[in-house]
Structure formats: C-alpha cells, structure tokens
C-alpha cells in the first residue's frame, strides 16, 4: 500500500545534489561529500531511488590505473521531475538521525 509522505531531508539532499548537474554522472563518494551523508545512509537511499525509477546508474572505468570501475548515478526524467518540485533549502544542515 503506497503512502504519500514528504521526502526525508536525506532524500531531498541527494535529489537536489543530483539535480544541480542533471546531465553529469556522479559518484557515490562525491555525493557523500556534497550532502554530508555517510555511506551507510547514502547507499540504501540510492538503492531505493533506483528501485523507484528515479535514478539511473552505469559503470565507469576508473581514471586511476589498477582500480576497479566506479558506479555513477544521475536522475532519470522522473527523478528530475520529483527533484524540481522540491523546495530549495536556505541552508543545508543535514541530520544523520532518522526522522
């Protein structure tokens, strides 16, 4: 049963960070730095956004020799529509605590 609830602050932060550069492929570690989220919070969120069709991903070769490829992400058209409807925060202070 789907319930319409407002996105969590963490979700908003990730969507807005991705929407800031809609055509660019972003890496997880970069998103962590930009949103202030730790990996334990970010990756489950990315997984859920991907499951909901808001996020697309691809593997990109590493620029560093001998390193494994990196998973990169950007919003789908549906994700961009959702992100566009979000209010922009005046100051981004992201709490790690669950709402």
């Amino acid at each position: 049963m789907a319930r319409n609830r407002a996105p969590s602050p963490q979700t908003c932060a990730v969507l807005l960070a991705l929407a800031a550069q809609p055509q660019a492929w972003r890496y997880g570690y970069d998103l962590m730095g930009e949103t202030g989220l730790k990996s334990g919070a970010l990756y489950p969120l990315l997984i859920r956004l991907s499951d909901q069709g808001l996020l697309e991903s691809e593997w990109r070769p590493s620029v560093l020799a001998g390193r494994p490829p990196r998973h990169a992400y950007r919003l789908t058209a549906h994700g961009m529509a959702i992100a566009s409807a979000l209010p922009r925060p005046a100051a981004s202070q992201i709490s790690e605590q669950p709402a």
Binding site: Y27, G28, Y29, Y43, I47, W59, L64, R67, H71
Partner: peptide, 16 residues
C-alpha cells in the same frame, strides 16, 4: 539481488 550495489560500494572504497 543487491550484490551490484555491494560492488558499487567496493568500487568507491578503492578510491578513498
């Protein structure tokens, strides 16, 4: 079914 995401995290880890 989520092993792809685990590989994604491994990939990022290698670049830290």
């Amino acid at each position: 079914p989520r092993q792809t995401w685990l590989n994604a995290m491994h990939g990022e880890f290698a670049h830290i």
